[in-house]
Amino acid sequence: MKIVVLLSVTTIFVVSCLATLAYASDPSPLQDFCVAVKDEDAAVFVNGKVCKNPDMVVAEDFFFPGLNKPGNTSNLVGSRVTPVNVNQIPGLNTLGISAVRIDYAPNGLNPPHTHPRATEILVVMEGTLYVGFVTSNPADPALKNKLFTKYLYPGDVFVFPEGLIHFQFNVGKTNAVAFAGLSSQNPGVITVANAVFGSDPKINPAVLTKAFQVEKNVIDYLQAQFWTDIN
């Protein structure tokens, strides 16, 4: 009974947060809706996606099934993100919101990453997470980037401000599950290690050795790794 009540309360909470976040990032629509046309079917490029003919819109354009299904966490970092953005629900186009489900195996990590276009609000459903974010470069060069962290339990909520590097780590002995709302129809994700060491083509090692102040063999090792994409 407690689990059912928690699910109901958190569902209402997430929906309310998503409605509020709609005003935070993407531009407001000028019509009831603008259901997205698949990129390959669009004749022009816009900031977002081209609108489907309103006369052709159906209920399925606003629907996505399956967030009750656990994501596959059998990867190197032990987590999986199931996104629900404009690519999964075309009706989200111009509405400025999206959502994700995140599954974590024991010791599973959602690695440090940023969402360049969205603030994220996370609700823990199961398990215990250690979460945090790092501020941008301070105005005073004598100061360091500040880290904010918290241990979260079922029913707890945490916000990651737009564009800042953040992470979640399952510190419990059981699987963990969280849901999050994001203030963009397409928030984007830049996983720091993947982008820096797993780019194609590779960043010149001379750049990275100087940036990270390590020897070239360290950079060579990191660039040779398989960087897991969990999204």
Rank of each mutant, 00 (worst) to 15 (best):
87 N>E: 12
132 G>D: 07
122 L>K: 05
55 D>T: 13
193 A>F: 14
113 H>G: 11
116 P>K: 03
43 A>R: 10
221 Y>H: 13
187 P>T: 01
211 A>G: 01
119 T>M: 00
73 T>A: 07
154 P>M: 04
186 N>D: 15
209 T>N: 05
2 K>H: 07
99 A>T: 05
41 D>T: 07
197 F>K: 08
28 S>C: 05
190 I>G: 08
58 V>W: 06
34 C>L: 07
70 P>Y: 03
184 S>P: 05
175 N>K: 15
70 P>I: 03
35 V>M: 02
74 S>K: 15
88 Q>G: 06
141 P>C: 09
14 V>A: 09
208 L>R: 07
75 N>R: 09
173 K>Y: 11
153 Y>Q: 11
76 L>Q: 12
189 V>H: 00
170 N>R: 10
77 V>D: 15
199 S>C: 13
228 T>E: 14
59 A>R: 11
116 P>I: 00
166 H>S: 10
6 L>E: 15
154 P>H: 04
98 S>R: 06
188 G>N: 04
132 G>P: 03
42 A>C: 02
176 A>N: 05
161 P>M: 13
81 V>P: 01
168 Q>C: 04
156 D>I: 00
231 N>S: 14
58 V>N: 10
119 T>S: 01
172 G>H: 04
50 V>N: 03
64 F>A: 08
118 A>M: 00
22 A>I: 01
135 T>P: 02
45 F>M: 09
66 G>N: 07
194 N>Y: 03
55 D>W: 00
169 F>C: 02
174 T>M: 12
77 V>Q: 15
5 V>R: 13
150 K>N: 13
14 V>M: 13
37 V>N: 01
205 P>H: 08
182 L>F: 07
122 L>S: 08
40 E>K: 14
83 P>I: 03
145 N>T: 08
155 G>L: 01
215 E>M: 07
104 Y>T: 07
107 N>P: 00
222 L>A: 12
99 A>H: 00
158 F>K: 12
32 D>F: 09
158 F>R: 11
25 S>H: 09
2 K>R: 04
179 F>A: 00
184 S>D: 09
29 P>S: 12
190 I>T: 13
